[in-house]
Simulated scan of single mutants.
Amino acid sequence: MSTLLELSGVSVSFDGFKAINNLSFQIGEPEMRAIIGPNGAGKTTFMDIITGKTRPDEGRVLWGEKGVSLLSMSESQIAQAGIGRKFQKPTVFEAQTVRENLAMALKNKRGPFDVLFYRKSAEGAARIDAIAEEIGLTSDLARPAGELSHGQKQWLEIGMLLAQDPRLLLVDEPAAGMTPSEREHTTDLLKRAAQTRAVVVVEHDMEFVRRLDCKVTVLHEGSVLAEGRLDHVTQNKDVIDVYLGR
């Protein structure tokens, strides 16, 4: 498995507060990784740095086989390079159908004329059907997205990201607000996605992390506190002190 993303010696401060402190992290492709840590550990800032929303004060962020620096790229260039991010609150086009949402997200040429003269291709339709099946929304393709349950909207948004064919998928607290059966489906969905790409899941729900059955990185005060299987890191004395709370 080759390294897809590598952060080394990354630090960023906001008004004198070090949100990320000399952080080093790497993930391969394909790989699933869970990021856990108490509030204020730097989990969101970590994702902001990878997607170009926040610029670090120091350190390197390298991407792909050639080790291209993400720090020299804009947010849209980073997205085009193959990094997709799903925020905690689902953002789907509620008035459009599930099919239309997926069609808008498909990885097509994005120039003004390309959008203007977009033709519904058989290839695009087949891809939409395949993604709908993968996210479990085949029977909902004709429904307006606004009618979906919270969990289904989350799946649709994951589907919209998959439609862009990213090499790295960043997912923020996917289990929040879901029913137990929705969580189970979400676990399966993310595990399948991680068979062909890198998937980073930031999550508070330990049971959900356990079901992902992957390597876990524990952040604390902007640094990596521990890394390894969940059973291994939850037995770490430092992790117990800062996160699990004796």
Rank of each mutant, 00 (worst) to 15 (best):
2 S>V: 11
3 T>A: 09
7 L>Q: 09
8 S>M: 06
9 G>T: 01
12 V>H: 14
14 F>N: 03
17 F>A: 02
17 F>Y: 09
21 N>A: 12
21 N>I: 02
27 I>Y: 00
27 I>S: 00
29 E>C: 15
31 E>C: 00
31 E>P: 03
33 R>L: 11
33 R>Q: 08
35 I>F: 10
37 G>P: 04
40 G>M: 05
45 T>N: 11
46 F>Y: 06
51 T>R: 08
54 T>H: 01
56 P>Y: 14
57 D>L: 08
57 D>Q: 13
60 R>T: 11
64 G>S: 05
65 E>I: 07
69 S>D: 13
74 S>G: 13
78 I>D: 05
79 A>Y: 07
79 A>I: 12
81 A>D: 01
83 I>W: 01
83 I>V: 13
84 G>R: 03
85 R>V: 09
87 F>K: 11
87 F>W: 14
87 F>E: 11
89 K>P: 00
90 P>C: 09
91 T>E: 13
95 A>K: 13
99 R>K: 14
100 E>L: 03
111 G>E: 06
116 L>C: 05
117 F>Q: 02
119 R>T: 14
124 G>A: 15
125 A>Q: 14
127 R>P: 04
127 R>D: 11
137 L>T: 06
140 D>T: 02
142 A>L: 09
142 A>Y: 02
143 R>C: 12
144 P>M: 11
145 A>N: 06
146 G>F: 09
147 E>N: 15
150 H>I: 06
150 H>L: 15
156 L>M: 07
158 I>C: 07
158 I>W: 08
159 G>T: 01
163 A>M: 14
165 D>Q: 15
171 V>T: 13
173 E>Q: 03
175 A>H: 02
187 T>L: 07
189 L>G: 01
191 K>R: 15
191 K>W: 07
193 A>C: 07
194 A>E: 10
194 A>G: 09
195 Q>A: 14
195 Q>W: 01
196 T>W: 00
199 V>N: 03
202 V>Y: 06
203 E>H: 03
204 H>P: 06
206 M>V: 05
207 E>L: 02
208 F>R: 02
212 L>M: 14
213 D>I: 02
214 C>G: 04
215 K>M: 08
215 K>G: 12
216 V>Y: 04
219 L>H: 04
221 E>V: 13
222 G>Q: 10
222 G>S: 04
222 G>P: 04
223 S>R: 13
228 G>I: 00
229 R>K: 15
229 R>S: 15
233 V>Q: 05
234 T>S: 10
243 Y>V: 04
244 L>Q: 01
245 G>H: 05
